[in-house]
Design a protein around this nucleic acid. Structure first.
Length: 754
DNA sequence: TTAGGGTTAG
């Protein structure tokens, strides 16, 4: 129990003391504590009134909106039980409900209100409306709103907020118009709600000047924030400077918009301003700054702010720690990200997501899956963000099986296949060789956004379905969606793969003329490749010479590749010199040169280039290969709990990570290749008996489970699994994937138990 | 009773 609770409860307990305590819980952003405190209230035999009721609803609503994933809280369930147990005689008999979601707790309290007659006041109805809105039950919110006889500005604000919070911006605006038609005067909250419902800041700005609401601190703060959020830093700054009072919130919003644009010098100016004005930067300020650190040249700034965070104590804040994890991951310092994560006192889902995403972003998807397993062991279920991130990891590894399981999870749990998850699925299926499934996912999305269209266009182009890609491009335009630079990359790639020279020229032209999208290096590289492959080397060269940006390795490389195709040794050698000066460490360059000489049968030159490649370490990018072996193993008639498998996997010099799927339970094995050394097996947490048994024995499930050895170049495994009976025999379906995932030492570093 | 800067995702 915290200090405030002790103070209130040590004095003579009365209802208003409890109400004060409830308010304290809201102020300290701990709505769930309200629910616990309500239990105390009942213990003290205090009779709640309608105000208690309204506060309880607010607590439920806030808890509900903050617990993404509809996870019931222990406290809410407790209070529910209390309502039934101790409040039965005076409040309710609650209808039993199978779904244990937090909204259920809110409905329980609603039911209690109806029965006790405490729900008729408009204040309570407003609170209830807001609760349902936060739980995305707009139908219930609307019903309640209709019941309110005298709809005050608060009632209208609640509905504007309800629709705005749930993304129905047009409806929010309609309610605002209706409110005006009924001559209800808007207040500052109306404006804040409208702005957060994506209202145009310019028109809102005019309106608030006319109605004198501009003088309200919350209104101008929201306006500055909205200008900033839309990337209009200038308007945000002009408005901010016109304000009499300096305030950290709008200044942070401006800083954040600069950070979003990667404009670190402006970010630093804002930060200096904050310090000059003696304002204390908070966690949001810190996290906004860290968000802006995307360019490697700014990494030093990021490090400096990490130090600042340690000194100021801000780095303890979860938000800041998440921001730091993301920043370090962006620059491939995944060890630092892990270290920060392990030091966190509390690890909410969002922090797990940050780390998982960090692993995927830094190209270590295997680690992301390990972290995901740990996350599940700690009792967190994945949300839409976890799933989208992991799907991206599946695409990275070509890990179709796990991707499919994630898709099944989405379907089983009624997670909406909307823009983020849908696009991630399309991306995963495309990268895992299942374009038809990507198509099906795409068709299931009601209202695909630009990024989703882009994924499908790129997918088609990758598979050489250039006409489908171009048809997608036309449909996208029919929907009134404006293509961006990624769309054109997909479209140009489709033309290149299909050899559609005229179309490619046309799209390159309309890209800037019609859509005002300036071609970047990748667009040029693609067009050069298109022209070069078609043998139009001169036109490709002219295109490069006319570029308004300096051509990079990819652009010249595309031309060199065309030279290989058309055996243009003379131009090829000229380009090779250019490329060598640009970047002589890239393996790609040597491969291209070697291919060029090979087409002409110049084997001596090929050998020279290969030697150069070895000497410069240019062949640094090793590939990942995955071999899948399926086998059905028949076991003895007795029910074997301990299954001994001798798997015939020849070990090679480098270290490998093996993934064995026992039935559908994946086990990861890291195999250090020194002979006779114990092999370490990692059990992926799952609803398998092996895992639950281990968990029962030891709550701190060791990450690695010693169970095998490597002898004579073969892998011998002892697995504890549950085989299944097909009526005749006990069977174990084993699928083995062998994937080279890099040096074992790097992987092992991340885990504690070794 | 209604609202207000931020982190994680394609």
């Amino acid at each position: 129990m915290n200090l405030a609770s002790s103070i209130v409860l040590s004095t003579k307990s009365n209802l208003s003391s409890f109400h004060s305590l409830f308010k304290f819980c809201f102020d300290t952003k701990n709505p769930r504590r309200v629910l616990l405190t309500f239990r105390e209230l009942l213990n003290y035999n205090e009779k709640p009134n309608d105000f208690t009721f309204a506060l309880l609803i607010k607590a439920c609503a806030l808890s509900c909106s903050s617990s993404f994933g509809f996870k019931p809280t222990f406290e809410a369930n407790q209070i529910h039980t209390h309502l039934i147990k101790s409040g039965a005689d005076q409040f309710i008999l609650v209808p039993s409900c199978a779904r244990h979601e937090l909204i259920f707790q809110g409905r329980t309290i609603h039911g209690f209100g109806i029965k006790s007659g405490l729900d008729s006041g408009s204040q309570v109805k407003n609170a209830l409306t807001s609760m349902y809105a936060r739980c995305a039950d707009l139908e219930a919110a609307e019903c309640l709103f209709e019941e309110i006889v005298e709809k005050s500005v608060v009632s209208w604000n609640t509905m504007i907020g309800a629709y705005g919070q749930n993304g129905f911006f047009n409806d929010a605006m309609l309610y605002f118009k209706q409110m005006r038609e009924r001559n209800v005067e808007a207040n500052e909250v109306t404006m804040v709600c409208l702005l957060s419902a994506n209202a145009n800041p310019e028109s809102t700005h005019c309106f608030v000047i006319k109605t004198a609401l501009i003088d309200k601190c919350s209104v101008n703060t929201s306006l500055v924030c909205e200008y900033a959020r839309r990337g209009d830093s200038k308007s945000a700054e002009v408005l901010y400077k016109s304000l009499p009072q300096r305030n950290l919130v709008p200044l942070t919003a401006i800083l954040s918009s600069h950070a979003e644009n990667g404009n670190m010098s402006s970010v630093m100016e804002c930060f200096a301003q904050i310090q000059q004005l003696d304002m204390k930067p908070d966690a949001v300020t810190m996290v906004s700054i860290l968000h802006g650190v995307t360019d490697p040249c700014h990494f030093g700034i990021g490090l400096a702010f990490h130090s600042y965070g340690i000194k100021s104590g801000l780095s303890i804040d979860n938000l800041v720690a998440n921001g730091l994890i993301s920043m370090y991951s962006k620059f491939d310092h995944i060890e630092a990200a892990f270290s920060l994560f392990f030091d966190m006192h509390e690890k909410p889902l969002i922090s797990w997501n940050s780390l998982i995403s960090g692993c995927v972003q830094s190209g270590k998807a295997t680690d992301a899956f390990e972290v995901f397993c740990q996350m599940k062991m700690h009792g967190h279920g994945p949300d839409a963000i976890t799933i989208a991130t992991l799907l991206s990891g599946c695409g990275q590894l070509g890990h179709l099986q796990f991707g499919e399981r994630l898709h099944n999870y989405v379907l089983r749990n009624n997670i909406e296949v909307e823009s983020f998850v849908g696009t991630a699925l399309i991306d995963m299926y495309t990268k895992c060789g299942r374009i038809e499934r990507a198509e099906n996912v795409f068709k299931s999305i009601k209202d695909p956004c630009l990024v989703t269209w882009n994924s499908m266009i790129s997918g088609y182009s990758l598979y050489g379905f250039e006409h489908k890609a171009l048809s997608c491009f036309s449909k996208l335009q029919e929907q009134g969606i404006k293509p961006d630079h990624i769309t054109f990359l997909g479209v140009l790639a489709a033309c290149t793969h299909g050899g559609l020279v005229d179309e490619g020229r046309k799209y390159f032209e309309i890209m800037r003329k019609e859509f005002n999208v300036m071609p970047g290096l990748q667009h040029y590289a693609c067009s050069v490749s298109l022209l070069g492959r078609a043998g139009l080397l001169e036109e490709a060269l002219i295109l490069i010479k006319d570029m308004e940006i300096k051509p990079d390795f990819a652009v010249w490389g595309a031309l060199l590749n065309a030279c290989c195709i058309h055996q243009e040794l003379r131009i090829g050698e000229y380009l090779a010199k250019k490329l060598f000066l640009l970047d002589n460490s890239s393996g790609g360059f040597y491969v291209l040169m070697s291919n060029l000489y090979a087409t002409k049968g110049k084997w001596d030159e090929v050998a020279k280039v290969r030697k150069m490649m070895r000497e410069t370490g240019g062949d640094g990018c090793s590939g990942i290969s995955v071999i899948e072996v399926n086998s059905l193993i028949q076991l003895s008639q007795t029910i074997p709990r301990r299954v001994i498998l001798s798997l015939n996997i020849q070990l090679e010099k480098s270290c490998y990570c093996y993934k064995i799927v026992l039935k559908d339970i994946p086990l990861w094995i890291i195999a250090p290749c020194s002979e006779n050394r114990q092999m370490l097996i990692h059990l992926m947490p799952h609803s398998c008996s092996a895992c639950s048994e281990t968990r029962k024995r030891n709550l701190n499930l060791p990450l690695w489970y010693k169970a095998g050895a490597i002898k004579y170049g073969f892998v011998h495994l002892i697995l504890i699994g549950t085989p299944y009976n097909n009526g005749d025999a006990w069977l174990l379906f084993v699928q083995i994937s062998v994937a080279h995932v890099g040096p074992v030492d790097n992987l092992l570093d991340h885990f504690y138990d070794l």
